[in-house]
Design a protein around this nucleic acid. Structure first.
Length: 621
RNA sequence: GCUCUUGUAGUUCAAUGGAUAGAAUAUCUCCCUCCGAAGGAGGUGAUGCUGGUUCGAUUCCAGCCAAGAGCACCA
């Protein structure tokens, strides 16, 4: 919402384009902004501004470019870009004119003031939109820029080289990863990729759940029923089996719960036997986890888990008490958060042991001191909202406020019953099984195809397609909504799915392979560009020039679905282009080259975008 | 009970306060003449309810209804 002030229209700068215009054009070494795209929007905004000045709109004496919003309309018949600025201006006090009249007046002025040949058409439409059609030459230049930028296309300097810590995956040691763990792992990985692309210095952090009462329980279970050989053979399976059994037996013998807590307390106090068991559990588990990460193609820079902060717990709890931040309550230590409208946060159990929250406070302090980040993203499920609200509130009380703290929450993966999956009750769909299933299915489909691939290639492709399908299925959806686990949907390789995108890419590459060397098209000399590219080709260019903005938006909103949705539309435009436009059989060399360059550029954008999502793009499929 | 999240075609999901609410899937028709049917063209079908703010509301606000999650010794 803009506010009207004497001297101008002041925007609190909440809009996307506002940030866009405030971004520097040229980033630091190694990064380059997109002069083509940037210039286009800048020119449009400038032209609007000049038009407002030149008109007697009764508008403000000065309008910052940032106040002028451009959007990409859903339907192309509303132009390449559109603005509702005239309607906003008319609605302001002193506007005085009818929105449509103002829009029409501005549209006329814009046409006059624009650089010659920049627009094809500028039109005012009821109730007061101004729609812009870029000229074929402008689109040609934008495509030429994108083609020239190559693999750097879409990079920008939004991050300015600042450090961001992205915490994701955080699996529990001794528990198998189920399909619910997929979300944090791949959303975190994709966000890290995107932020890296936007020139943030990204620290990928796997905060292992390697400490806590659960290990007391596990130690009890192992001492009662465990066998060393069994654990060595299948570490995580066996440990999880013990954990599940513990909870089963606990129903009949409630005293087990207390024993679990006691064993954890002993572990925390340094009991040699428990310590040794814990180290063993941890080591075996990490080996297994790494296998899973390799399959998923996910990596981390830092593997510091909860146990790392164990030695600082006592001092931290004492400090919180001494500084008057925490207080005693029923034998335990709590931080009252009434001022933030939150329930009290427990930071020490009555037996003196620490809690998850306590370790997270120590963790935060450590991160700020060691990495000096501007942001920390916690990619953790919705259900932990309260935990993070409490953590952030306590951080403020402690003055740990040098970084922006963000709980990047995501919805739960629910079972068929509509309820959350729970390891304790044993009703889970294992991630490894889901991945296997997807790869097998991909292989089956592949076997039915005519494309000749070697056995090794088939294995490779089935793997890329199966894993990609699973990942994309999650990444395309809005983060915050709960999703229901659904085999059918996960294994559907048609429509809006990773295989569709991978297929579009492979087809484009196939055309390019058959064409041989792509002649370097001289865009500057193709004056008759509109004769070279079909309508569907221009629609494809329109998609291509959206890419840099989409990446920025995905980074701002921490949203993978923004990028995934865009890539799907890009692939649709690609399919349509080579469905309707002759390429290889075109005998006009200049026209053929121009079309090949367009296809090549689109394919690169698709590959880059999917790469950011962590989905691989085989050359043949 | 309190807090948070979410209610959109049969199903699974989209939609910076904008224009005719988009897709996918299922279902019903068509299409292998550059490249490759994991594809393309078309038909059917939806905003939980009641108000409010706005030129304009799926979006913002209030109330109701429904689902899920969380709420002191788990993580």
């Amino acid at each position: 919402m803009e506010v009207w002030r004497p001297g101008g229209l002041v925007s609190p700068c909440g809009t996307r384009l506002c940030r866009f215009f405030h971004r520097p054009v040229n980033g630091p070494a190694g990064y380059r902004a997109e002069p083509g795209l940037y210039q286009i929007k800048m020119d449009i905004a400038k032209t609007i501004k000049e038009a407002i000045h030149a008109s007697d709109a009764g508008g403000p004496s000065s309008i910052p470019l940032s106040a002028i919003e451009l959007s990409v309309p859903e339907h192309e018949k509303f132009g390449h870009y559109a603005t509702n600025f005239a309607m906003r201006l008319a609605a302001l006090p002193g506007g005085g004119k009818k929105p449509f009249d103002l829009a029409a007046e501005l549209a006329g002025k814009i046409s006059q003031n624009a650089p010659p040949g920049f627009f094809e058409k500028v039109e005012a439409v009821a109730p007061g939109f101004i729609n812009f059609w870029l000229s074929k030459e402008t689109l040609r230049d934008a495509l030429a820029d994108a083609a020239r930028a190559g693999d750097d296309y879409g990079k920008s300097d939004t991050g300015g080289g600042e450090t961001v810590i992205v915490e994701y995956s955080q699996p529990n040691i001794a528990k198998m990863m189920h399909v619910g763990h997929l979300r944090t792992t791949i959303i975190g990985d994709a966000l890290a990729n995107i932020l890296d692309f936007l020139n943030y210095k990204v620290v990928r952090w796997n905060y292992l759940g390697d400490w806590g009462t659960q290990f007391g329980k596990l130690i009890v279970a192992y001492k009662e029923w465990g066998k060393r050989e069994a654990v060595e053979k299948h570490p995580i399976e066996e440990l999880q089996e013990l954990y599940v059994r513990f909870h089963r037996e606990m129903e009949a013998k409630p005293e087990l719960e207390k024993r679990g807590q006691e064993e954890f307390k002993k572990l925390e106090d340094g009991d040699a036997e428990n310590r040794k068991l814990w180290e063993w559990f941890r080591e075996e588990s990490i080996k297994e986890l790494n296998k899973m990460y390799e399959v998923l193609g996910v990596r981390f820079d830092v593997w510091i888990g909860e146990a790392f902060f164990e030695s600082q717990m006592k001092a931290l709890m004492d400090e919180l008490l001494t500084r008057g931040i925490a207080e005693k309550s029923e034998g335990s230590l709590v931080v009252k958060l009434d001022a933030d409208g939150l329930p009290p946060a427990l930071i020490q159990k009555s037996d003196g042991a620490s809690l998850y929250l306590t370790r997270d406070i120590a963790n935060l302090r450590y991160r700020l001191a060691e990495y000096k980040p501007v942001k920390i993203l916690y990619v953790v499920a919705n259900e932990q909202s309260l935990h993070f609200a409490q953590l952030f509130a306590i951080a403020k009380m402690l003055g740990l406020d040098s970084a922006e703290l963000v709980h990047v929450k995501y919805g739960l993966v629910l079972g068929d019953t509509g309820k959350k999956l729970s390891t304790r009750q044993g009703f889970v769909q294992l991630l490894s099984e889901a991945l296997d299933e997807a790869v097998v299915k991909a292989r089956e489909v592949l076997e039915k195809r005519e494309e000749k691939l070697s056995d090794a290639e088939k294995r490779e492709v089935a793997y890329a397609v199966g894993v990609g399908a699973l990942k994309y299925n999650d990444l395309k959806e809005n983060r915050t909504t709960d999703i229901t686990f659904n085999w059918e949907k996960m294994l559907d390789f048609t429509g809006d799915s990773a295989p569709y995108l991978q297929y579009a890419y492979a087809r484009a590459k196939s055309v390019l392979r058959k064409a041989g060397e792509v002649g370097a098209h001289d865009f500057a000399r193709s004056q008759d560009f509109s004769a070279l590219i079909s309508d569907s080709g221009f629609a494809l260019i329109r998609r291509i020039i959206e890419f840099p903005d989409v990446v920025v938006r995905a980074g701002e909103l921490y949203s993978t679905s923004v990028l995934a949705t865009y890539l799907y539309k890009l692939a649709v435009a690609m399919n349509k282009f080579y469905e309707t436009t002759p390429i290889l059989k075109d005998e006009n060399a200049a026209r053929r080259d121009a079309r090949l360059v367009l296809l090549d550029t689109a394919a690169r954008v698709l590959q880059r975008g999917l790469g950011l999502l962590g989905v691989r793009t085989p050359e043949k499929i």
